[in-house]
Nucleic acid binder design. Structure first.
Lengths: 335, 335
DNA sequence: TGTTAGCACTCAAAAGAAGAGAGTGCTAAT
DNA sequence: ATTAGCACTCTCTTCTTTTGAGTGCTAACA
């Protein structure tokens, strides 16, 4: 077991297959290379390590990494964490805070990072207002708990009087204010439309637009950083792979899959590790992904992901993630 | 001259140094390779082509490309343009329209693209409203010509009465509505503050925030697409270069330089070509950049850039750009 | 005078050959 | 159980050879 750890540790650092002699010399096990070789043969039979070719050293298999990671996570559980503060500065806008977070993590870990904007489903509408901008254009402003602001411009067919507009505003506010985003569903909308009477057409348009505005963004707001870090790891940097990875980061569409998967699968710490093929993303067989679910205030959950080679420094990554999660929380409370 | 064109055309396609035999066989000039060789020697002396090594074919020098591009642009001037429509769909939000544009160009040209959000300096404020969201939080919504919407949340110290808020709104609207963004400068702000009387503190905060909101974004809103296209061109795809390029696209900071440069340097068509070292960007010695200045409505100017290898298909790129510019204009008018 | 055939020459890139060395598995001894 | 010793394997590096596309120059030709 110690030997497996030693092999993996060494491989994490160097990225080169590691031989029996190296282990024998650079650990405090005081075993000769021959002994190590015997053990290695066993470990290989058990499927934890493998040989790229007969006369090369060993590298960890996915199963080997898995064992190692599980072990480490268990240790972390007990460990009292103490870390130098990595600093997130206060930001008045959520998107900037998230961008900053992604970048910070990328710089500190040397891996590629992503962060999804928190889901707003459980959040309540705090403020809602329709204003006329042009004769037949309305501006709808919606503020959601956490000071997330959404706007839409609506084109309306008929010209609205000031009075009508006022009525509409009152109607909308009475019914929607304080309501959670997830509660704005079809029955509610239908009910509202009925109450609107002559203005039902407008109401219909408005509400649909509001629902749209909230949900549309919710799918896709993902910020990434440090994509070019992949070039630091030869095993990811060949054209084929690099191109695919860069594309995934640019498109971001696939990353939403990762977000969904992560949010679905709850565990105690909120941190999950996907090694190689375990990953929910395509073309990531040679990568590992560490994800964390962060929470801002009540129920605003989002996902942070760190993507690097399988031989990433899991220990450091997990520490960084935990640290950032704590800070995100702190910064948010200050706002 | 015909020979230079032939050499460049061939090199654009293949990316390989081109020899005399190739030219002699695959053009309708009906000249033997020996003749071509003589001409080539002359062209080399004039500095339009060069030899990677003695026993290789020739590749165009920057000067060669320049000559070729100038020639082509002059021809384009006269040419009646006729192109299949590349379709931009109507989008109610400007940012989505721009993202779509970038992506479309990237897919059609197979190069990396960027597009900057139009500058709003000459645009007028169309709508401005302060609302109370919490006891001591104000929401400022600003709509600018072209339906660009900005919001800021302001923390205020004292709690404002409804009446004060109303007054503030009136004051702000009377003075700022219809004003161009560039006109909101220090003297104006000072004048306003004076008029505000007891509320001068708030006014001060509000106006500063408004100015901030408008200008802050103005610097940096750049959308990119197709960064991974660079892997399609071996001369750009080695680790060093690729990493730098990808970084430039991700950071976007440097790209603002390009935008400024382009907007400053006016020419008739609005299209500019930077070859190799001519580029205003660092680390782009092996790239060419074609930029265009687009205009949405009155004075909302922005920049589109296409970045590829020096042997990019300038012809196709220019056509695509012109086409997209025309469509951007059309789509915008529809809005 | 412009064009072309012919030929010797150059040089990068591909192919082949040789050697080094890191690492292994197995056996026999401690 | 552990280890020293040894033959064996196979990649990687280095060096050499071969190949071939392309050149420049000269001499002949229209």
């Amino acid at each position: 077991m110690k030997i497996l750890q030693a092999i993996i540790r060494n491989y994490l650092e160097t990225g080169e297959p590691v031989g029996s002699r190296t282990i024998s010399k650079y650990t405090d096990l005081n075993l000769s290379s021959a002994t190590i070789r015997n053990e290695m043969a066993d470990l290989e039979e058990m499927g934890y390590i493998l040989q790229p070719h007969t006369s090369a050293g060993r590298i960890p298999s996915d199963a080997g990494y898995r064992l190692y990671v599980d072990l480490m996570m268990a240790e972390k559980e007990r460990e009292v964490e103490e870390m130098k503060e990595v600093l997130l500065e206060k930001e008045d806008r959520l998107d900037n805070l998230l961008k900053q977070t992604a970048k910070l993590l990328a710089v500190n870990t040397n891996y590629a990072t992503m962060i999804s904007a928190p889901s707003l489903y459980h959040n309540k509408l705090k403020f809602l207002q329709l204003s006329r901008v042009e004769k037949n254009q309305l501006l709808a402003v919606i503020v959601i708990e956490g000071n997330v602001i959404k706007n839409t411009i609506l084109d309306v067919d008929e010209v609205l009087t000031d009075e009508t507009l006022l009525k509409l505003n009152i109607l909308l506010n009475t019914h929607l204010n304080g309501m959670a985003v997830e509660e704005i569903n079809l029955p509610l909308i239908t009910a509202l439309k009925r109450q609107a009477g002559i203005h039902s057409e407008i109401i219909s348009e408005v509400i649909d637009a509001v629902a749209e505005a909230i949900k549309a963004d919710d799918n896709l707001e993902i910020y990434t950083s440090g994509a070019n870090n992949i070039f630091k790891y030869p095993e990811l940097a060949d054209h084929q792979r690099a191109s695919e990875l860069i594309n995934t980061f640019e498109e971001k569409k696939e990353l939403t899959e990762l977000v969904k998967e992560t949010l679905a699968e709850e565990n105690q710490t909120g941190i999950q590790v996907y090694i190689g093929k375990e990953s929910p993303l395509e073309n990531m067989d040679d990568c590992s992904i560490v994800t964390a679910t962060y929470e801002l205030g009540e129920g605003m959950k989002g996902t942070i992901g760190i993507i690097g080679p399988k031989r990433m420094d899991y220990d450091k990554v997990v520490d960084n993630l935990k640290n950032v999660m704590r800070q995100l929380d702190a910064v948010y409370r200050k706002d």
